[in-house]
Measured scan of single mutants.
Amino acid sequence: EETGVRVELAEEDDGEKIAIKLWLRIEDIKKLKGKYKDNEAIEFSFDLERDVPEDVAQEMVESGYVCEGDHKTMAKAIKDRVSLIKRK
């Protein structure tokens, strides 16, 4: 499903790190509610043992990086990427 958002690794995952750096990349602004630039990327750290995707997305909303209306879309994108990383 195309959401307009993609999360990718910002650094090589060696399988050892607990906290990883990720990029939340805006790919299609028409599919989102907030005002973003095409190909805008937000770099953030995610602790694989402690962080919760919904909470991280909420922090982005509170910091003004993400529109409240896009919270669920961002949280799902983060959750999907993190579950792929954890499965390795």
Rank of each mutant, 00 (worst) to 15 (best):
E2D: 13
G4I: 11
G4V: 04
G4K: 09
V5F: 15
V5E: 04
R6I: 07
R6F: 01
R6A: 07
V7A: 03
E8G: 05
E8I: 09
E8K: 07
E8Q: 03
L9F: 11
L9H: 04
L9N: 04
A10W: 03
E11P: 09
E12K: 09
E12W: 03
E12G: 11
D13Y: 15
D13I: 08
D13C: 08
D13V: 08
D14R: 06
G15L: 05
E16H: 11
K17N: 12
K17M: 07
K17E: 10
K17T: 09
K17F: 01
I18S: 15
A19W: 08
A19S: 15
I20R: 10
K21V: 03
K21W: 00
L22N: 06
L22I: 06
W23F: 14
W23Q: 15
W23E: 15
L24V: 08
I26M: 10
E27W: 07
E27G: 10
E27V: 15
E27I: 15
I29K: 15
I29M: 14
I29E: 15
K30Q: 12
K30M: 10
K30H: 10
K31W: 05
K31T: 06
K31I: 04
L32Y: 06
L32S: 07
K33A: 07
G34N: 02
K35E: 13
K35T: 13
K35D: 14
K35I: 10
Y36K: 09
Y36G: 06
Y36A: 06
Y36M: 07
K37N: 12
K37C: 08
K37I: 08
D38Q: 13
D38Y: 10
D38H: 13
N39G: 14
N39Y: 04
N39R: 11
E40R: 11
A41C: 15
A41E: 11
I42H: 06
I42W: 14
E43H: 07
E43I: 08
F44D: 04
F44L: 07
F44M: 04
S45I: 14
S45V: 14
D47W: 05
D47H: 05
L48N: 00
E49I: 08
R50G: 05
R50K: 14
R50P: 05
D51K: 05
V52A: 12
V52R: 13
V52I: 13
V52M: 09
P53K: 04
P53M: 05
P53W: 00
P53R: 01
P53G: 01
E54W: 06
E54S: 05
E54H: 02
D55S: 11
V56T: 02
V56W: 05
A57Q: 00
A57Y: 03
Q58G: 06
Q58W: 14
Q58I: 02
Q58L: 10
Q58Y: 10
E59K: 13
E59C: 11
M60W: 08
M60K: 00
V61N: 00
V61E: 01
E62W: 05
S63H: 11
G64D: 02
Y65F: 13
Y65G: 02
V66Y: 02
E68Y: 06
G69Y: 09
G69F: 09
G69C: 14
G69W: 07
H71P: 01
H71W: 13
K72G: 14
K72P: 12
K72Y: 11
K72F: 09
T73Q: 13
T73G: 05
M74E: 04
M74D: 00
M74Y: 05
M74T: 09
A75Y: 00
A75N: 06
A75S: 10
K76Y: 00
K76D: 10
A77R: 03
A77F: 08
I78V: 04
I78T: 00
I78W: 01
K79C: 05
D80H: 11
R81W: 07
R81I: 04
R81P: 01
R81H: 09
V82W: 03
V82T: 05
S83V: 06
S83P: 06
L84Y: 09
I85G: 00
I85V: 07
I85W: 04
K86T: 09
R87H: 07
